[in-house]
Each structure stands twice: as C-alpha cells, then as structure tokens.
Amino acid sequence: MIKSIILKNGYKEFVLKNEKIIAMDNVNLEFKTGKFYVIMGHSGSGKSTLIQILGLLDNLTKGELFINGKDVSNLTENEKADIRMQEIGFVFQSFYLNPRLNALENVMLPMYINSKIEKKERKEKATKLLSSFGLENRKKHYPKELSGGEQQRIAIARALANDPNFILADEPTGNLDIKNEKIVFDTLRNLADNGKSVIVVSHNENIKNYADEVIYIENGKVR
C-alpha cells in the first residue's frame, strides 16, 4: 500500500464578522515517505493552516485529503482521532508537553491509547526513543528542568511513540537557539532517511540544506 498524504483542490476559509479570509486556495500537494519536505512563506501566508489540515487537526472547507489512499475529509471525529494516533506525529512550536509528567511519561502518553502496544512494552519503547535522541539521562526530568532543545526532542520522541509514517512539525525550532536548531533539524533529517515522511513549516533559511523539497506558500496558494 502506498504511504502518502495527498491534498486535492484544498480550500480553507475563515469567516470573521462578514469578512472572509481565504487561508488556503486550491492547493494540490503530495507527500511521500522517506522524504523531507519544507513549507516556507511569509507570515500569514497559510503555512500553519496547511500543516494543521494535513495533520487532521483542522478541517478543509472544500477539497479532498487522502491519507494512504483513503479519503479522510468526511470521516467522523473518532475515525480522525484514530488516524492521528496511528499515522501522524505532530510537533508544535511550543512543544505542548504535559508539565506534570516526566520525559518518559510524556513519551509514553500516546501509547496509552494504542492497543497495539502492550503495557509492559511502553516503558522499554519510550526509553529507546529517548536514548535515540541522546536523552537517556533525562528520563526522570520534568519539562521545566530541561532546555528548549531537549523539550523539543522529547516532543519529537512523543510524536514517534506510536510509530507513525508522517511527522509534521510547525516551526519546531521557533523557540530554539542555533545550536539546538541544528540538533532538531539533524534529528528530523535522520527520520526521513529512515523512511518517514517529514513535513516541516519554517521560515528559517538554513532548513533548505536539509530538505528534499521546498514548497513556497503565498496568500494561501502554492507558488
């Protein structure tokens, strides 16, 4: 089966007090596994809107979205939640970690709702993930005790918890310094090399060096 995300005639509008904002206008895109995609564009051009729709965090106004060949635009909320859990790992600019859970518990969190992962496997799997990002000594630390780069790597480890094919990241280095930025980009590149589809929104020019494909967005359209 083909592993891909395909967006056909994607259209998204926001209606605000009689004013209509078109955040995505007739966008056609295809994302394959094993590749690193970068989405670039000015502020307000519609990058976040696009990646959130790709990650099923938001709904299209018009158009079709296929994940692994399946039309997901008309699925129920529960079915979408299932796809988010199995196929998509989302990384946020603000990390979005649970401050009361330690690093290990944060990474384990998505495994609680995945019946394919047995209870006793959780800890081992999460530990492996953290080790692969050089965080084996940080397992018991809470988010506030960690640097931004470390927190973002934990967030990436969490995104990988259920072994999804697609890793989506919206400005993952927006809150990080240059050193941590490089670590995160290396990590993401590595994932693509290992067969994942990595889609990253960024306006950082450095990222182009890591990308297989750069997509420019302007006023909700692909340039």
């Binding site: 990650g55 965090l57 909320e77 529960n78 939640a81 299932d82 796809i83 988010r84 859990m85 199995q86 998509i88 989302f90 946020f92 979005y96 649970n98 969190l109 998505p110 709702i113 969490r158 259920n162």
Partner: peptide, 15 residues
C-alpha cells in the same frame, strides 16, 4: 491545554 494536547495526540472524545 490538556484536552487540546490529548486530542492532537489522538485521544478520542470518549476517552
């Protein structure tokens, strides 16, 4: 914050 995060990870409303 909690619910938004859980939903993004793939928790269902029922859960």
């Amino acid at each position: 914050y909690e619910i938004g995060m859980q939903k993004a990870i793939g928790f269902k409303n029922r859960q």
